[in-house]
């Protein structure tokens, strides 16, 4: 599909229609052979590295859940000291838990120290490896097993943490958002991220059919709708200049958010048994506000 050689070999144990698998495949194939992959504990690590097999045709390191960025920092330093740093990529594939929550401290440290590492957050908006528990990446109104809707709950009660803006606030050389529905845009950003001399961060929306409750062949459609409804905005910031945030995919005719929400079982309680116009309206209002605030 992308390159002649697949560096994430087929036969791994990730689900059909997994957004994370697709994102990782695009990224590692774009980065090429001279790449070291680091991954925290999570879906991807457990499904691709079951001893004595591995799906990785590039060097791969997993240490623990919260420290992928620190381990990657150590690799960067070691390669430098070995005189082997030139022309090598260090690529971290972390989930939203390993980025937004438990991995945030190590990530912030790695950014601040300026390690030449490309950190990709494959965000599927909940702790999927443990079975769909909410995290700070879970969007407002979504069902998860720890944010269940009920008499006193509409599902997740907090808005999503703006992780890419938090990354950009570190004034690192490159920060972008991407999604697997816009591969060319994602690849262009990957190439920029890998080329900078310092840390880079790409926040990839990578939907999860099992956790979001949609059919596995709807992955691309759901990802595209996230962009077309303005739920997920594709942008980049170069050279740490937050004021020069550039929208890479303009959406002149935004679709109503309802079209996105309807595709996923995790929002079905907003439609049945009663149509929760208030909650959907609130989600729409937040998107409208975001577009107004950032002049999108």
């Amino acid at each position: 599909m992308i390159e002649e050689t697949e560096f994430l070999a087929p036969g791994h144990r990730m689900c059909a229609g997994c957004g994370v698998a697709l994102s990782a495949r695009i990224a590692v194939n774009t980065a090429g052979k001279d790449t070291i992959v680091v991954s925290p504990t999570g879906c991807m690590e457990v499904t691709t590295t079951q001893y004595p097999e591995t799906a990785w045709r590039v060097p791969f390191l997993h240490v623990a859940f919260e420290n992928a960025a620190s381990a990657a920092s150590g690799i960067d330093s070691a390669l430098k000291m070995l005189g082997k740093r030139e022309n090598k990529n260090i690529l971290v594939f972390a989930g939203d838990g390993g980025t937004f929550d438990i991995g945030l401290q190590a990530l912030s440290g790695m950014f601040e120290r300026g390690h030449k590492v490309t950190f990709i957050c494959n965000d599927n908006e909940a702790y999927m490896n443990t079975g769909i528990q909410r995290c700070s990446a879970t969007p407002y109104g979504a069902w998860t097993t720890t944010s269940p809707p009920g008499k006193y709950s509409i599902g997740e009660s907090k808005p999503k943490k703006p992780i890419a803006r938090i990354a950009a606030a570190h004034c690192i050389p490159y920060v972008a958002t991407a999604t697997i529905a816009y591969v060319a845009d994602y690849q262009k950003k990957l190439k920029k991220a890998l080329a900078v001399d310092g840390p880079s961060f790409i926040h990839v929306l990578a939907p999860c059919p099992s956790g979001w409750r949609f059919a596995s062949d709807e992955l691309i459609e759901v990802s595209r709708l996230a962009v077309q409804t303005g739920v997920f905005v594709l942008w980049e910031v170069e050279n740490g200049e937050m004021e020069n945030l550039k929208i890479t995919k303009k959406i002149p005719q935004r679709k109503p958010v309802e079209e996105y929400l309807k595709t996923q079982g995790r929002f079905k309680h907003l439609f049945k048994p009663v149509l929760r116009k208030d909650v959907i309206g609130q989600i729409q209002a937040e998107i409208d506000k975001k577009f107004e605030r950032f002049g999108l």
Partner: peptide, 13 residues
């Protein structure tokens, strides 16, 4: 070691 010339996986499941 982590060497693209001889890729291995460390920290397996």
């Amino acid at each position: 070691f982590l060497d693209p010339e001889k890729p291995i996986t460390q920290g397996s499941f």
